[in-house]
Design a protein around this nucleic acid. Structure first.
Length: 308
DNA sequence: GTCCAGGATTCAG
DNA sequence: CTGAATCATGGA
């Protein structure tokens, strides 16, 4: 197949700069499963029907896309919150009185919640249960490559519910979905009968949205919270996963609390942008920056010790 | 071989 | 209602 005909790299002006480390965490930190790192330190991925690449440059973030994709820049700007609407929400988080949040926030300055498509977010997190992020990326990539509409340069859009419903069992099995294949099938079957579901869901207040999402097979409290946060822009949504359980247990002394209790704590403690706080904590915990009630500041990259 | 993974569902009590 | 078992798959 032909090599991608990219536009040249161009600056993407952001209200606030994204440091390279934060960009990596934002593109590959479990919000979206559609970005991959290229050799030159850039990130390439698909969101909606837009193919784009981004990289940190000397003057700030740079991007490129396919020629003729006239909406790509506007789409990317919205996707990355280029206008900075989350900046004041982040500023308003209780980081001044909360040393754990302060450290996590300082570790990933400029980290934002990606504004993703509800459909794509739902598919991604339907695949997410009991899987590592790298493995989720493999599943989602296989779904797109085998079932999604070709976008050129070998990239594909996420499959529609119809494309998922029509797929052969063998095709889904080849995506390494395991028991999650039934989640996708079941949700596809329900939402096929409801083509405007995303708009209908978007009109609901957050509590009702979370409830409605959980009527779908494969969607429990945690997946619903992720879809509400990343796909519907509900910044107050507070997903409680294994990393957040660990972070709140270790660094906040909440060991033994059940997920529902931790969710309530998170919403009460962090407020209207609890989901953004959650993402700071999630990233810090997953990268080993929180432990045992203290915030660990790494001095050197830890290297696995040779074992006998 | 064992254990675990951005959990959800089903079943027993 | 709560807690435990089960669910496919791949990597460490």
């Amino acid at each position: 197949m032909a090599a991608a005909e990219w536009t040249s790299w161009r600056p993407l002006r952001l209200a606030e700069d994204i440091p390279a480390g934060t960009l990596a965490e934002q593109m590959d930190g479990g919000q979206s499963f559609r970005w991959s790192r290229e050799a030159a330190g850039s990130w390439v991925g698909v969101f909606g029907r837009t193919l784009a690449a981004v990289r940190p440059g000397p003057q700030g973030l740079e991007w490129r896309g396919l020629p003729g994709a006239t909406q790509a820049e506007a789409d990317l700007r919205r996707y990355l919150d280029a206008e900075g609407s989350q900046a004041k929400l982040s500023e308003a988080l209780p980081w001044r009185s909360d040393p754990v949040l302060r450290a996590a926030r300082a570790a990933y300055p400029g980290l934002r919640i990606l504004r993703q498509d509800p459909h794509e977010t739902l598919i991604g997190f339907l695949c997410s249960s009991n899987k590592r992020i790298v493995q989720i990326r493999v599943m989602v990539a296989a779904l797109a490559d085998k079932l999604g509409e070709p976008l050129g340069a070998g990239f594909h859009a996420m499959p529609t519910w119809q494309e998922i419903a029509r797929a052969e069992d063998a095709t889904l099995r080849a995506c390494s979905l395991g028991y999650r294949a039934a989640y996708l099938r079941g949700t596809a079957k329900q939402l096929l009968a409801r083509p405007r579901w995303a708009e209908e869901f978007a009109a609901l207040p957050t509590a009702a949205l979370l409830e409605e999402l959980q009527t779908l097979p494969g969607v429990g409290p945690k997946v619903a919270a992720c879809v509400a946060l990343f796909g519907f822009g509900r910044l107050e949504s507070f997903p409680v996963d294994t990393w957040v359980v660990q972070a709140l247990g270790d660094a906040y002394g909440l060991r033994g609390w059940k997920p529902a209790q931790l969710e309530q704590f998170g919403k009460a403690h962090f407020g209207e942008a609890a989901g953004l706080a959650q993402q700071y904590l999630f990233s810090a915990a997953r990268n080993g920056l929180l432990s045992r009630g203290a915030v660990i500041v790494p001095t050197k990259p830890t290297r696995p010790r040779p074992r006998k």
